[in-house]
Computed example of a mutant assay.
Amino acid sequence: MPRIVPRFLAALAAVAGALVLAGAPASAHTALVSSTPAAGETVTALAEVSLEFTEQLLDIGNELAMVAPDGTRTVLAIVEPVTETITAAVPDDALGAGENVLRYRVVAGDGHPIEGEVAFTYAPPVEATPSASASPTPSASASPSASAVVLPTTSPTPHVTVYEEVGPNPAVYVIIGAVAAGALALTIALRGRGNGGGAGGDAAGGPQA
């Protein structure tokens, strides 16, 4: 009886060791080598994700999904065939600004599933917004203001220049008349003196005849 117990314990230890050795390769030699994007990386654009493992994966039972910061889960379409690297395209609406998580479930070549996730940050480029100087704003000259308002005013009276025909000044006629009258008076006076001298000569010579 005492000999049976040590043999039984030795058999159990051998079986346990065999199970450990059988399970070790499945968990040890199939592992994630790298990913795009890498864990903790910050990307500004992402059109495709890829995961590389240490050995060939099976083409069945593989799943890739993207979880956005708000919790939205988007299943990604895996590109076939699958080798030790598995890839998938990322739809435009699958990402959100902030921390995103790529979750995977792949099947190793020995049939064992491998699950895990890769967290990264998505920081989309900020679109340029028009500044105050670049945005079209109405200028002071373009906007109607109190000084620019045209108020109705009375139309100016047209200036008419009247040309009058100017005749001879009446004073000219007075002067001409005065000169003519003076000349006539002078003529009469001179004739009177001539006539008076002749008459005197005749009177003086009369008696002598």
Rank of each mutant, 00 (worst) to 15 (best):
R3F: 13
V5M: 08
A10S: 13
A11T: 05
A16K: 02
A18G: 13
L19P: 01
L32A: 05
S34K: 07
S35M: 05
T36L: 04
A38W: 00
E41K: 03
E41M: 03
A45R: 12
L46I: 02
E48H: 04
Q56D: 15
L58E: 12
R73E: 15
V75F: 06
I78A: 06
I78K: 05
V79E: 11
T85R: 15
I86A: 03
G98E: 01
G98Y: 07
N100D: 07
R103I: 13
R103N: 09
R103A: 14
R103F: 07
A108G: 14
A108N: 05
D110H: 08
G111H: 03
P113V: 06
F120T: 00
F120M: 00
Y122K: 00
Y122N: 01
V126P: 01
A128Q: 12
T129E: 13
A132H: 06
S133L: 14
S143M: 15
P144V: 14
S145C: 07
P152S: 03
S155R: 10
S155T: 13
P156I: 04
V162R: 13
Y163K: 00
V166K: 14
P170D: 03
G182F: 10
A183S: 11
L184N: 01
I188T: 13
L190Q: 07
L190E: 03
R191E: 09
G196K: 15
G198Q: 13
A199T: 10
A203L: 10
G205Y: 09
G206A: 15
